[in-house]
Design a protein around this nucleic acid. Structure first.
Lengths: 304, 304
DNA sequence: GTGAAAGCGCTAACAA
DNA sequence: TTGTTAGCGCTTTCAC
């Protein structure tokens, strides 16, 4: 089973490779006799031809590859590892439907290497949860014109399009369900500090009432310090399930940011913060891809 | 910021493209003057050169791309979606360390398209949870010589290397903890029926004591039908957390197959079934990759 | 309507 | 030690 090329097809069908290419790609402006088209198509079929996308990329200058790059440190706890699983699934599914192939790459939180973008000539990239201070080096070594959608990261750089969830709205909703109660908050950590800070600011309570999740032991302690009868507003459903081990689920409101609202404990309340974050990110990417350049679009998009 | 090629470097350093290539790739058998090497290297640096892997792939006939293809149906429940998240993370991390890039693709459970393997000329592929009946068509349209590691799927085809977890051992352990008790079992579904069947056979209890997870409602019902005081042995930690909503966690033993043992409810027992499944799969792949052909290795590998 | 030929960026014989 | 050159498989002018 050796590799079949258009040359083989050309020979088989007694045409030139150009003609084969025209036909296989349905080139719009090329008129082809039904007869030759048919001959070529059946030849291709018979020979079991599969195009070589690397070769195609080389000449078309489009690879059809989209990257999903996620910031990750070594030894992350399970709730952190799983955090973007849903988003990756969704994006991958949507992109695949659209005919793109997805390159998945974790990048080290400490020293993010994004060489893959240039090396693989990715057509577009999702960058997830990136430290603020790394954006400079990223944008510096960056092939201009590659659509770059930054997720869950705040950064002052007009090069990037950013998608974040509407934590303010989610917060309002959650709070509206708990009026008149003492509340404590648990939020999820991001490598992007400004984002964490923005969420903190939006919440605007004292440090004693807010915990940025780090590990289960600290969480336990934090919760145990809260006055009896307090209500908890927890960001992220994985963290929520942990909190539910130490607080009455009925006292909790979980803000779902990982796309798994079904997993929150039965008696806890939940508000979904990302209804369609993947969808939005995807659509933004498609827009950028098709415009093939700058877009007169808000650089910040808040989901839902 | 236009794209720099070895030709640019060659010009800049007053050498031929061949020389540049030699130097940039540290070609073993080529001796190069320190002086030219230095000139070329600095030129490359100055110009901010990034190799084009597509071009390289074309001539080397190796793409450096490894595929992770996961069988997925539309609208899977959350516990199913997350099931391979950890494995994907792990594999990706290991492969990235080794200098490979990872292409992630979900394939439809109903009509799996694996064209990506041939089109992208993937150097190796992990195929996860594939229906038995699809293997024929897969192996038929398959570029010979591509290492193919099949995970969580039983199939009688010597073309593939298979990795499954050692459910028998896990089972023994779990059972040894519950001797003298009435036990019921909940196992996770796989698209690969023979695998499900094999697990069922290993358990060997009546249908009334075994449930293949489908949805939460049925799970509830199943559990409620069990005699009071029964112990439950649940495969998969996500399913385990669901079960814990309807049974006393203390009565449960969770067989962790998704790499997140930390998430099982505090009072439940747990046995890890996959200690190092990703690691094993990865190493197998590396072996195959380096042998560049057949390997006198067991086609079935049971993890742990 | 079809084909010849020039590349895309890179590697690897083979010469020099 | 370095350069020349022939491709890898494909697309795309531009002639015919």
């Amino acid at each position: 089973m050796k590799k079949v090329t258009i040359k083989d097809i050309a020979k088989e069908a007694n045409v030139s490779t150009a003609t084969v290419s025209y036909i296989l790609n349905n080139v719009p402006k090329q008129t082809i006799t039904d007869e030759t088209r048919c001959r070529v198509l059946t030849a291709a079929e018979r020979l079991n031809y599969v195009p070589n996308l690397a070769a195609r990329s080389l000449v078309k200058r489009k690879t059809g590859l989209i990257g999903i790059l996620i910031n990750r440190a070594a030894n992350e706890p399970w709730w952190r590892q799983l955090r973007y699983a849903d988003m990756v699934n969704q994006l991958e599914q949507l992109l695949t439907e659209r005919g793109y192939h997805v390159v998945l790459s974790s990048i080290e939180a400490e020293k993010p290497k994004v060489g893959i973008i240039a090396e693989r000539k990715l057509d577009g990239v999702f960058l997830i949860d990136v430290k603020e201070e790394h954006f400079y080096s990223i944008s510096f070594h960056f092939p201009a014109g590659v659509p770059l959608v930054v997720v869950d990261s705040l950064v002052e750089d007009s090069l990037f399009y950013k998608v974040i969830h509407d934590y303010e709205l989610a917060l309002q909703t959650a709070q509206s369900w708990n009026v008149g109660h003492a509340c404590y908050y648990v939020i999820e950590p991001y490598y992007n500090e400004p984002y964490v800070q923005a969420i903190k600011d939006a919440i605007g309570v004292e440090d004693s009432q807010l915990y940025v999740m780090e590990d289960e032991a600290q969480l336990t302690e934090f919760i145990s310090r809260q006055p009896a009868g307090s209500k908890g507003i927890i960001f992220n459903e994985f963290i929520g399930t942990l909190a539910a081990k130490y607080a009455d689920p009925a006292d909790l409101t979980i803000v779902c940011t990982s796309g798994c609202p079904e997993m929150v404990p039965a008696r806890a309340k939940r508000v979904s913060a990302i209804e369609n974050k993947s969808q939005i990110s995807f659509e933004l990417m498609i827009q950028l891809l098709k415009l093939d350049g700058e877009l007169p679009i808000d650089k910040y998009i808040k989901v839902k």
